[in-house]
Design a protein around this nucleic acid. Structure first.
Lengths: 220, 220
DNA sequence: TAGTATTTTTAGACATATCTAAATTTATTT
DNA sequence: AAATAAATTTAGATATGTCTAAAAATACTA
């Protein structure tokens, strides 16, 4: 189990929400900032080791054991994120990169103790669910992308995509964090941007941002 | 800067207390549980990169920059040890191996915050000094090996060698931890073992153990 | 000091993970 | 359906860090 293996399985897991369940070589390569040829090499290795099922020119799916490993890596990553945020006071745009390194320290015992020390957090600072020791994800209010709501809807943010720390800084400035409540004011069809009201301030969210935020509809 | 580089520089630093200051290839290989030929290869690379000065068949010494790196690794290692012990409740024989992995996460900012969170500890759980952010080691009472004292001396343990967790378990059982006070009762010349009184219990320490404990003489 | 033993280095090989460039397969057009 | 475009794979190379076996240098000893 190498760092590289960890990263590939985690990437494949997070890209698995496709129609057929297959994840393409290019998607993996892009996610991991590497070349498609490198991804192919690695995928073949993961296949031989039983972590993924690979069909040439079609893509990969995680096996049960591969999924288990991916969830362990994600668990470690998110628990470390909570630690860095809650205990060391890092801003939420800073925790991802550090957790990216800490997640490769593989001691189930240490992670369990850390989880207990943090009082069993269920979600990381971006609102992503933390798998428990046997890979179960906590239930979360049914959420959809912010750009899928209708004008007039009152919603509560459940999570935001953590892949761009620049965007996180921007979002925090407007208090667009998990738990925040907002109202959809307008939808602009020409560029899919939306106008929302949050804490009495009205701001414009680009299509890219709106699709990076997940929220639940509030009972009115 | 790889994990391997970290480990070699750390090993060389800890082996540098020789007469001439040179550390031999074999010593490094043994410390890192690898083969002398591997150590030679790596040493040549470290030399090319400017971390050590290498003379064939003689050994290596750390350069100033190499020493700086080594102290950074040691700093990270020991601060993590304190965290694992103080905050996560790991026993002192368990922290070394975990810190061995955590020490390779290289973020000066994170370590500084962790240090602050732990309230600036000066020594790790085994009594070893923690370098500050610019590599300065805290002053420590003048300590010598336990087997160098005389019968009748009252001494206080300052540190114990942390390389064998089995020994640490044994020592903890008899409260032979940093800070503990004891009296040298007898010295057996035939095997260099010593008898000491600690917390009203008299125990026998083998030569190996006695030489793994550092202590300071107490004013009587 | 010559001979033996030990330490250290070299030569050549291997595994991991990556890359570039070229070949192949699949998808899309016209 | 043929031609073109895009995605994917292969072939061959590179860098890192390790190993075994053999050669070279140093240290010990008789």
């Amino acid at each position: 189990m190498s760092t590289s293996t960890d990263n590939y399985l985690k990437a494949i897991y997070s890209l698995s929400n496709t129609e057929d369940g297959f994840v393409t070589t290019n998607a993996i390569a892009e996610k991991l900032q590497t070349k498609p040829s490198s991804a192919t090499d690695m995928i073949k290795k993961l296949d031989r080791q039983g972590w993924v099922a690979y069909t040439k020119y079609q893509g990969v799916t995680l096996t049960e054991s591969g999924k288990k490993i991916a969830l362990e890596v994600i668990r470690r990553h998110r628990i470390w994120e909570v630690f860095l945020s809650d205990k060391l006071g890092f801003a939420w745009d800073e925790v991802h990169d550090l957790a990216e390194q800490l997640e490769h320290v593989t001691s189930a015992e240490m992670i369990s103790r850390l989880e207990s020390y943090l009082q069993y957090p269920q979600f990381d600072p971006h609102g992503d669910p933390i798998p428990d020791a046997i890979g179960r994800l906590p239930k979360r209010p049914k959420s959809i992308r912010l750009d899928a709501f209708m004008v007039g809807d009152k919603v509560r943010i459940t999570s935001v995509d953590d892949s761009s720390s620049e965007m996180l800084v921007y979002l925090e400035k407007y208090n667009a964090v998990p738990g925040a409540e907002l109202t959809i004011k307008k939808c602009f069809d020409f560029d899919n941007s939306i106008q929302v009201k949050i804490k009495s301030k009205t701001i414009l969210l680009s299509s890219k941002i709106a699709s990076s935020i997940q929220a639940e509809k509030m009972k009115t």
